[in-house]
Write a protein that binds this DNA or RNA. Structure first.
Length: 848
RNA sequence: GCCCGGGUGGCGAAACUGGCAGACGCACGGGACUUAAAAUCCCGAGUUCCGAAAGGAACGUAUCGGUUCGAUUCCGAUCCCGGGCACCA
């Protein structure tokens, strides 16, 4: 029989991943529709998404890990009958392309597209099942034109505005630097040049309009990691407090001028002994106008603060301050408080001005001690004993568990009441009001860079700021721009780009030369996947309505804040525009751990990098992928060990042999488990336990490391039953049984090692695409153990083991336990006080 | 300083709801096959102690304490590692 001959030839062949993988690679290359999502389907939809990479040149192992998780899930969902959307794209604008262009004299576009081609080839070689017909490349006009379109919509709705704002400026480069290009306050290219802060006109998006909703809706994201939700909550930084106006008494500015301070502890305001201003506070300039000495001191404070901020330790700045010689009136008690300028007060939180209450604030206490300012107690610990005289609290006393004293009409209130009543009082009298502040700032999107989306705005001498009309989009990013020159936005040096006509008056106008932050690109790219080739709109709302929200998003935790907040913001504003119906883009989020090796994060500078290419070459894609899943659970840090890849590779070779030594092709007749030998029944039982285990892992905790371990256990048991699976094993187990075991094993392997699984699937005579083959179902009856071993504890210590039928009742288990020789010896001469039986798990005896 | 994770054999790890700690893999030791090696297959193994052996005992999940018949798991305190935020008023 020809069939037998074929079996004989494969049997001696060793598992050669290169041969197997190149064969399937070629086939998959030829079939573009293989992983295509169906536009309309009666199947339930499933949108699985992995964070798109920046095309830096080559994939690293972190990518392989990320994408192996998503790919396993996508394949599993396909096999479970879902219409799966599993796309990929390129976050391809950004600074490295410009740096590379300068270093290699290659235009950013060319450099980027070359990298994309290389990384796409790597992804294909790794066997990731992406629908490439939906590929999104953010640096191409058919994508970024929609960034521009969105910008116009945002501007129309008043959510984009222009404001002066501080940027990093290197005087030697004569250009703006991104934060990442500033190291310890110095320029990255000129290590001896201090970076300055300059005021530049920049475009901002009003994300703060959504601060409250972004915060509130975090509660809805139950399938996001708590860690990410907490990080976002902190980032938004909602804080309730009170604004209070301190009258300047006409000493400066027009009569009636005030300083507004923000405080969360208005209950302590009677204890304020000074007012502290940030060095950047606008009033400071007025105070120093006629006092050169004071001005110098303030400049010094400013410099100290800037330096501390840049080097990231504003938290440890040594507190300095200077008295301005002016006073402000505390509206609650009329006290005149000295106004100071201090280096630890920052302008970009609250109002840049605080009231200083040394007795009840750590920082104010420290400052007051240093400069010998008065310390006034207005809060004492609430005592359970009303007779007890008011204790002098240990200073500074900063908790909310206190009672207000020395505070006029508010004496005796506890903190929460005092805060409420004193805010109301201020409001009634007109010198203050309760307020909410956020740490979240509006999103500055202007970048003085070349390689980004041009902001579609014009400046006309007559008409001022004029948006580019929608019909003129896209504003194409010009090529052949010299970006090696220094001095502001590179686009500003391209006259053909800058010089334009005002769409209103037809007169000369100047184009905006800044480009957009690349986080704009990644804020909505996943909507584009749903309708990637639409040339009339960013996407069709109906199509997006079908696919959204994203069922599962997978990526690194490093994007927990910026990318994921901007994305949520973008979704909310698109919803308000009527473009989408979902409030949130992502239903479930998974953040995988990073990869370390030899105790440190894998990085080129540390020289501990393992590349996907070398892994694929040495072990094949299946082994490399499966190892990233096997080494540890996906959410943990992965400690890379080359020998671990070897282990997985050995397992795959065993799996190959397991099927090829006796491939039962095309035999699918039913068989009765009752006709099997005990050993074969054991295998069948283990098979169904393994199906359950892996199915549970996919629907639950995603501990794919234990899924792979379960496959290994199963295979080990099969290998031990050699006579069943060896050639000519017919008299040990019937063919239908062997074929059934082999097919199900291959199906279980498919999400983790797609190349090998497809090869074995074909070898078993299957013609149908493995992705469309149904995921095996486990049968609880077949998975059930007949006999189980139960430990017996005496006074909490393990003293014996008994073997009982799986369905034994408590009475017989108890009898067995007490009859066990070792147990009997231990409890001899003692009285059994209590017997605890946990069905199927253990017996615990308490004796005296 | 505050908020999250985490600490288990020689190594990577597992243990889902409080129920046999160390599954699975690596490395290691022994054996089979081989002229030999590689590959493969089988067996062993937490530590310490007792025993010639079969076998047995004690200890053991960062440290100390608590709850419980029983704790890697729950509670309290401490130490260490990683991440996030940080004079945020």
């Amino acid at each position: 029989m020809p069939q037998e001959d074929k079996t004989a030839t494969v049997r001696d062949e060793r598992y050669d991943p290169q041969r197997v993988e190149s064969k399937w690679f070629e086939r998959w290359q030829a079939d573009a529709s293989l992983y295509a999502a169906e536009p309309a389907s009666t199947k339930p939809k499933y949108y699985v998404l992995e964070m798109l990479p920046y095309p830096s040149g080559a994939l690293h192992m972190g990518h392989v890990r990320n994408y192996s998780i998503g790919d396993a899930l996508a394949r599993y969902m396909w096999m479970n009958g879902y219409n799966v959307l599993h796309p990929m794209g390129w976050d391809s604008f950004g600074l490295p392309a410009e740096n590379a262009a300068i270093a290699n004299n290659t235009p950013p576009r060319e450099w980027t597209l070359r990298n994309i081609a290389n990384m796409k080839a790597q992804m294909k070689r790794l066997g990731f099942a992406y629908d490439w017909s939906r590929e999104v490349t953010t640096c191409l006009p058919d994508y970024y034109r929609w960034n521009q379109w969105f910008f116009l919509k945002i501007y129309e709705r008043g959510l984009a505005y222009r404001k002066k704002s501080k940027v990093n400026w290197c005087p030697k480069c004569a250009t703006v630097l991104a934060n990442e290009q500033v190291a310890g306050g110095y320029c990255w290219r000129h290590e001896d040049t201090l970076v300055e802060q300059r005021d530049l006109e920049q475009w901002f998006l009003r994300i703060t309009n959504y601060a409250e909703e972004l915060l509130r809706d975090l509660d809805k994201l139950e399938d996001w990691p708590d860690k990410v939700r907490t990080m976002q909550r902190n980032w938004i930084g909602r804080s309730e407090g009170t604004l209070v106006d301190f009258d300047l008494g006409g000493t400066v500015g027009p009569a009636g001028s005030t300083i507004t301070v923000f405080t969360t502890r208005v209950d302590t305001i009677y204890g304020a002994t000074s007012v502290q201003l940030a060095p950047e506070h606008p009033l400071v300039a007025d105070f120093t106008a006629s006092n050169a000495e004071l001005r110098d001191k303030v400049e010094q404070l400013k410099a100290e603060q800037r330096k501390a901020k840049e080097s990231g330790d504003i938290g440890e700045i040594e507190k300095h301050g200077v008295f301005t010689g002016r006073y402000a009136k505390n509206p609650y008690n009329g006290e005149a408080l000295p106004i100071w300028v201090a280096n630890y007060i920052v302008m970009d939180y609250g109002t840049g001005a605080i009231m200083s209450v040394p007795a009840h604030d750590e920082r104010d206490y420290e400052f007051a001690r240093k400069y010998k300012l008065p310390i006034k107690v207005v809060l004492v610990p609430s005592s359970s004993d009303p007779e007890e005289t008011v204790a002098e609290p240990q200073l500074p006393f900063t908790t909310y568990e206190g009672v207000v004293v020395n505070s006029g009409e508010f004496n005796g209130l506890d903190c929460d009441d005092a805060i409420r009543k004193m805010s109301e009082h201020a409001e009634k009298k007109g010198f203050g009001r309760a307020t909410v502040t956020y740490r979240l700032k509006d999103w500055g999107i202007s970048r003085q860079r070349y390689w980004g989306t041009p902001i579609p705005m014009l400046y006309c001498e007559k008409d001022g700021i004029v948006p580019v009309p929608e019909k003129d989009l896209p504003v194409i990013l010009p090529e052949n721009v010299d970006i090696t020159l220094t001095g502001g936005s590179p686009l500003g040096r391209v006259p053909e780009f800058v010089n334009a006509k005002c769409p209103k008056c037809g007169g000369p106008a100047r184009r905006e030369t800044d480009t957009m932050d690349t986080f704009v690109d990644s804020s909505w790219y996943f909507y584009r996947y749903a309708d990637a080739n639409n040339d009339r709109a960013p996407f069709d709302s109906k199509v997006v309505g079908y696919w959204f929200p994203i069922d599962q998003y997978i990526g690194g935790v490093e994007h927990a804040i910026l990318h994921l907040i901007y994305s949520r913001f973008w979704t909310k504003f698109m919803r308000d525009m009527g473009m989408v119906e979902n409030d949130e883009p992502v239903e479930r989020l998974f953040t995988q751990g990073m990869i370390i090796k030899d105790g440190a994060k894998m990085s080129k500078s540390l020289g501990n990098v393992v590349t996907p290419d070398e892994m694929v070459e040495r072990y094949g894609a299946d082994s490399a992928r499966m190892y990233t899943l096997f080494a540890t659970s996906p959410d943990s840090e992965l400690d890379w060990q080359d020998s671990g890849v070897e282990g997985v590779s050995r397992f795959l070779a065993r799996a190959y042999r397991f099927v090829t030594q006796r491939p039962i092709a095309g035999v699918t007749a039913p068989y009765s488990p009752n006709d099997l030998t005990p050993q074969a029944r054991g295998i069948l039982r283990k098979l169904h336990q393994t199906i359950k285990k892996i199915t549970d892992d996919f629907s639950g905790r995603w501990h794919f490391n234990t899924s792979v371990a379960a496959l290994m256990e199963f295979l080990n048991q099969c290998v031990a039953a050699d006579e069943i699976f060896a050639a000519h094993g017919d008299n040990c187990a019937p063919k239908p049984f062997v074929g059934d075991v082999q097919r199900k094993f291959v199906l279980l392997l498919a999400p983790f090692a797609p190349y090998l699984a497809n090869e074995l699937w074909e070898m078993l005579g299957e013609k149908e695409n493995l992705l469309r083959a149904p995921w095996p179902k486990y049968d609880p009856e077949l998975a059930k153990e007949e006999e189980i071993e139960i430990p017996v504890q005496v006074n909490g210590k393990l003293r014996g083991r008994i073997t009982v039928p799986a369905d034994a009742d408590d009475g017989s288990v108890r009898e067995r336990a007490l009859a066990d020789e070792k147990v009997k010896a231990t409890i001899a001469g003692k009285q059994v006080v209590k017997v605890i039986i946990v069905p199927g798990r253990l017996v615990s005896l308490v004796v005296r």
